[in-house]
Amino acid sequence: MQPGQKPQIAGRITTTAGQTGQISISGRTLNSNSDVPDVHADVPFRNQKGQLKLSSPTATGPVAISVKPTNQTVGDGYVVKGDLTVSLKAVSNVQPSGVTVDTSAEGVTLVSSAPSANLAPSATDVTRSITFVASDGQRGRILTQIKGKTRTGKDYIRRAYLYVLADANKLYTSSSGFVDLEIQKLQADHDARRISDDQYNAGVNAVLSGATESGVAKQ
């Protein structure tokens, strides 16, 4: 980056109405011989009636930072808040020290994840309070991964997913998989007479044949 140069960094943020927060931006020189200090900026934001409002950045370092929203999309969807509990599998003695719990999302947007304030910690369960956003038509999954060591010092990993399908009529969730979501939706649409018997049967046949899945190589 040369003096006077103004490279652009594009990022995307999904927010819900009324949500406030802060975007953090960090920069570091890649030339180890340089004395250029790191750059850091915090940009407060709020979602005001569906519009993203950015406040002035608070920056440190030799580089000035400016931010502005470039493109906003407002859509229908679901904001979901709740506790997500994952049980340890087959072991009861993961040492509390050094246990890490990570939550991430694919296909939907995870807004927040924190230890649950509602449920006491347990030796065999981990509960996170999460908030996620899913727009109509989106499907995705939220992964909770627990890493630690057993009493005998062996590495232990546990992964569990919450699968999500956001339909215009209903938000479907499952701990089973995408097949369960598709079948739930077909049954609901059939019960509500949104689809015919033939459409239902064809839909189930497609689900059983893998035609509706984009596929998951890794669990």
Partner: peptide, 12 residues
């Protein structure tokens, strides 16, 4: 069987 059904999966 697929969850929620008594139907076998298909490799077509």
């Amino acid at each position: 069987e697929a969850i929620g059904t008594t139907l076998a999966y298909i490799l077509p």
